[in-house]
């Protein structure tokens, strides 16, 4: 099993409702999402073009890339449609008090 690496990344209030933000943790940039009271985390760079998912459009638990409209499930990281051919990495998230923790593994 991969080693756990839980990081305190931000406050829950930093992520607007039904929205996405970018956060840098160490040398890594991740995207953090709020969907109906739940929080999710994925890599922030699209697997297709060079675009940040945090600038994309979040709807129904899927983030649409701002450049080419590929969609990923924010919970699983699964690529949902063309032009995507590769999933994105999704990270486990837990909430402790008002802080968001992400396991960067």
């Amino acid at each position: 099993m991969a080693a756990e690496n839980w990081q305190d990344v931000c406050a829950t209030s930093d992520i607007p409702e039904d929205d996405v933000i970018a956060q840098t943790v160490g040398d890594q940039e991740i995207a953090l999402y709020e969907v109906e009271g739940s929080y999710f985390a994925t890599d922030n760079l699209c697997t297709h073009g060079q675009a940040r998912l945090s600038e994309g459009f979040l709807e129904d638990g899927e983030i649409e890339c701002p450049l080419h409209q590929g969609r990923f499930c924010v919970k699983s990281g699964k690529a949902m449609c063309a032009p995507l051919t590769e999933d994105i990495r999704a990270y486990p998230v837990k909430i402790s008090g008002d802080r968001v923790w992400v396991d960067l593994g």
Partner: peptide, 11 residues
Amino acid sequence: PGNAIARDIKI
């Protein structure tokens, strides 16, 4: 700059 206009255009 960047893709900052993407969301608004999407809307």
